[in-house]
Nucleic acid binder design. Structure first.
Length: 188
DNA sequence: TCAGTGATTAGG
DNA sequence: CTAATCACTGAG
């Protein structure tokens, strides 16, 4: 197998069964509370495959959205067709369009009936959630995709646990002072 | 600072 | 059906 490295945590190569299964993160990781899952995502690898090849990126910036009471969480307004996946089992993807242009990629956490998700805000070498999905060609076809079983997108453990920073979440002015200030953004 | 852009949602 | 809203980005 051949690999190339760009020096910023990204690798590419040919897709094999070994690549798909080795070091893959399993269900238990995702079915925990979002405030435990989100910081643990920093330093993990996101792997995405296109045709016979794949690319691997290190997660560097995420935000937690936590259930009914979190006014910034889309699920706080109740279950709708768009948000329904968030009410299901952790490990699936919640993908939606914002401002008519940008797909937002989120990982659902916790168990059924406990709507939580983590927004992927940045990867090594890619800043901004809209740029992440543009670079990875993630769109609505990834809605509901299961990171535990999918053959085209999943997460890998790296054995690396980097130190991270926290801060308030971005772009949620509508959520009110308290939810706006909660430090649920985790980043390198 | 601000326009672009269209799915989603609540409301009539 | 209408209209408001929006977990953003790039140009000026």
């Amino acid at each position: 197998m051949r690999f190339s490295k760009n020096g910023r945590g990204m690798t590419t190569g040919y897709l094999t069964e070994k690549v798909i299964t080795e070091n893959r993160i399993t269900r238990d990781f995702y079915t925990r509370d979002v405030l435990d899952v989100a910081p643990d995502l920093i330093g993990k690898n996101l792997v995405i495959s296109l045709n016979e090849s794949f690319a691997r990126y290190t997660l560097t910036d995420v935000e937690a959205y936590r259930g009914h009471e979190d006014k910034a969480c889309h699920a706080s307004k109740g279950k709708t067709p768009r948000t329904s996946v968030m009410f299901g089992e952790g490990g699936h993807l919640y993908v939606y369009l914002v401002y008519g242009m940008y797909w937002m990629l989120n990982i659902v956490t916790a168990g059924e009936g406990n709507p939580q998700a983590v927004l992927i805000r940045g990867l090594a070498g890619i800043s901004g959630p809209g740029r992440v999905t543009k670079k990875l060609s993630v769109d609505l076809s990834f809605y509901g995709e299961d990171l535990v079983t999918s053959g085209r997108i999943w997460l890998e453990d790296t054995g690396i646990v980097p130190a991270y920073k926290t801060g308030p979440r971005v772009g949620i002015d509508y959520a009110g002072e308290y939810w706006k200030s909660v430090p649920w953004r985790y980043y390198l």
